[in-house]
């Protein structure tokens, strides 16, 4: 798939030359290089990787400890006995097991919201990039402006709108606003420009294919890696969504995990047991995203690449 797109793209943008199908090259060069650069390079990468992974490691270590051990034990190493199982047990049983509910909510909000947002953004991006109509410039500008407003500000006016629609404290209050991400539309438009050659569309039109058929088959196929990248970006954005759920959700059992953990964090003063719950909960709540990124690496890499290379 990726290679196919590279080839197609090279037809639209002749100067970019041969593409990068010659993946064997780096390996060949590794064989040629002298040991010194390899050693220096490896040292740099290893040091940076330690910097990047240490906080994650520390979180894992900390989540195996009881609350009052955090300050009194060596933070860089595990203390016996491990409290991880006990901590996990308290996490999943606290307040009637509500953390599980929060995780499921997050999956629902991020999964459904992210998917729907990706689809409609993809359609819009395709239309903005590859179809001729009056108003496409204005639409692109408005969307770019929308992408600039901080969430802290949008949350309250959005709350007012949701109130009028009678959606406060429903799943829709999170799902519907997450449909629109100006940033996702912006990216989709960029992906469409880069991955769909006009010639292909023209050829399809010659074959009397309908516009929607062209959009779904050619557009959908060629934009797929880009759409996966958008999906992941949206899932992360919705998973991190903070102010809006805080304002529009009133029932604890509708909260996403991040907000639920934040509310628990506020109880620490009066009940320190929540400290461990928040710490372990943070770790657990980050796992689905990490797994998702690991599993879908191939796709978002090529997606991001498309965006960056000719963006």
């Amino acid at each position: 798939m990726t290679l196919q797109i590279q080839r197609r793209r090279s037809t639209t943008v002749p100067p970019s030359g041969t593409g990068r199908g010659d993946l064997g090259l780096p390996k060949r060069r590794r064989g040629e290089s002298r040991p010194l650069p390899v050693v220096i390079g490896m040292v740099i990468i290893v040091v940076l990787t330690i910097y990047i992974l240490f906080p994650i490691y520390w979180t894992i270590v900390a989540s195996t400890k009881a609350t009052n051990q955090l300050a009194s034990t060596n933070g860089a190493w595990f203390s016996l006995p491990l409290h991880l199982l006990g901590n996990l047990q308290s996490l999943f049983s606290a307040n009637g097991g509500i953390f599980v509910r929060w995780m499921l909510n997050s999956v629902l909000y991020a999964g459904v919201g992210g998917l729907a947002c990706t689809l409609i953004s993809g359609a819009a991006g395709y239309a903005l990039a590859r179809l001729r109509f009056r108003g496409s410039g204005v639409a692109s500008g408005a969307i770019l402006l929308g992408a600039m407003l901080p969430e802290t500000v949008m949350a309250f006016p959005q709350f007012l709108v949701l109130t009028r629609l009678g959606l406060v404290n429903t799943y829709w209050a999170i799902l519907l606003p997450s449909l629109i991400s100006p940033f996702a539309v912006f990216l989709a438009r960029m992906f469409a420009i880069q991955s769909i050659p006009m010639e292909l569309i023209e050829a399809a039109r010659m074959d009397r294919a309908g516009e929607f058929r062209i959009a779904t088959t050619i557009g959908g196929t060629l934009m797929a890696p880009g759409l996966v990248a958008i999906l992941l970006i949206q899932i992360v954005a919705i998973w991190n969504n903070f102010f809006l759920p805080l304002l529009v959700l009133n029932s604890a059992n509708k909260l996403p995990a991040t907000v639920g953990l934040y509310l628990w964090n506020g109880k620490i003063t009066q009940n320190p047991e929540y400290q461990t719950l928040v710490l372990v909960g943070s770790l657990v709540s980050a796992i689905p995203l990490m797994v998702l990124f690991l599993v879908l690496q191939r796709y978002w890499r090529s997606g991001l690449a498309t965006g960056a290379v000719k963006g």
Partner: peptide, 24 residues
């Protein structure tokens, strides 16, 4: 082409209007 463009844009335009433009 124009008609198709607006159909494809419709969901985003509606969602943008309700959840971005009005709040802004």
């Amino acid at each position: 082409e124009k008609r198709a463009a607006w159909w494809l844009l419709a969901p985003v335009v509606i969602a943008f209007g309700v959840f971005q433009a009005v709040p802004i």
